[in-house]
């Protein structure tokens, strides 16, 4: 009797294929398929109700969806740049510390250890207009005599959300940049000093180019995080009031799990993934360029 024998390399790779298929490919294909159906969680039979591109057309024509899309891009841009600048500053300062640096590095990571839900509640309380810490402090110091609606006004709420995001994730940049600072060869830095460069020139033309690959890696990681921002915003404002702080995933989460319209939510999700892909490709290109300029790339 003939028994088919698979090549050993395929047998060895099989468990990985099976796991990838089960946890990545099948859910991905299923969610993609459901985005072309009228699938509602509370009516399982609707998963077979094929409606073509109706969900995509609906999302494309929905002003609220595009407003949330734009807001997510804005949050991504502002939060990432602020985190990069603050993280760079923090890393440069910590790198100068000669005693207790380990302790400082550990303390720097504390915000990352908090659950985003907890961070959301913490900042929701700080920015509460009536009993919040910030308004009480401003009123006690005589800086204002009104209750500033931090989480109601669109711009102020955006600032509040950015603050929470920056507080919790600046250390991602700081840690990665710090690793970059430790990896910089000292020869070019010393040569720059001998050649009479000012500290700023040394930083701008020697240190920073060496750090750029690390910064782009942090940017790529955080862009994926912020493009999927949900927990903190859901707790602080739930996308409101009046959709003023609605982001892609607060909208998609509510559509899928509260309204139970999973087909439509998945369609919006697939459009939203484009955002992550664009940012990831952009940062990886920048990373390759930065590495090439340092003679590290191909």
């Amino acid at each position: 009797m003939y028994r088919m024998r698979l090549p050993p390399w395929l047998v060895l790779l099989m468990p990985a294929f099976v796991i990838l298929l089960a946890v990545v490919a099948i859910p991905l294909v299923l969610s993609l398929y459901s985005s072309f159906t009228a699938f509602q969680l509370t009516r399982p039979e609707t998963i077979t109700k094929w409606i073509g591109t109706f969900n995509y057309q609906k999302a494309m024509g929905d002003a609220n969806f595009w407003a949330a899309f734009g807001r997510t891009v804005l949050l991504l841009t502002v939060a990432l740049n602020l985190e990069m600048l603050l993280g760079l500053g923090l890393a440069l300062m910590v790198a100068k510390v000669t005693r207790g640096q380990r302790l400082l590095r550990t303390m720097m990571m504390f915000p990352m250890m908090f659950s985003p839900i907890l961070v959301g509640f913490q900042f929701k309380f700080i920015f509460n207009d009536n009993v919040g810490l910030l308004n009480n402090a401003l009123q006690s110091l005589g800086l204002t005599d009104v209750a500033i609606p931090w989480l109601v006004d669109g711009n102020l709420a955006f600032i509040a959300i950015v603050t929470a995001e920056v507080w919790t994730s600046t250390s991602v940049f700081a840690i990665l940049i710090l690793a970059g600072l430790f990896a910089i060869p000292q020869d070019p830095v010393e040569a720059a000093r001998v050649d009479g460069c000012t500290p700023w020139q040394t930083f701008r033309y020697v240190t920073l180019p060496f750090l750029m690959p690390f910064i782009y890696i942090a940017m790529a990681i955080r862009s994926l995080d912020v493009a999927r921002a949900y927990d903190i915003v859901q707790v602080m404002t739930a996308g409101g009031p009046a959709r003023r702080t609605e982001l892609l995933w607060t909208l998609i989460g509510r559509t899928g799990y509260v309204d139970a319209r999973m087909g439509y939510a998945n369609a919006m999700g697939y459009i939203a993934i484009l955002l992550s892909i664009v940012f990831t490709v952009y940062f990886f290109r920048k990373l390759t360029t930065a590495r090439t300029s340092l003679g590290m790339g191909d």
Partner: peptide, 21 residues
């Protein structure tokens, strides 16, 4: 009404009245 009332749900309201304000 408090300017943040559009963000309030039941706990915020209950605690608000209990704060005496």
């Amino acid at each position: 009404v408090p300017p943040g009332t559009t963000n309030y749900l039941w706990d915020d309201l209950g605690n608000g009245f209990a704060s005496g304000t």
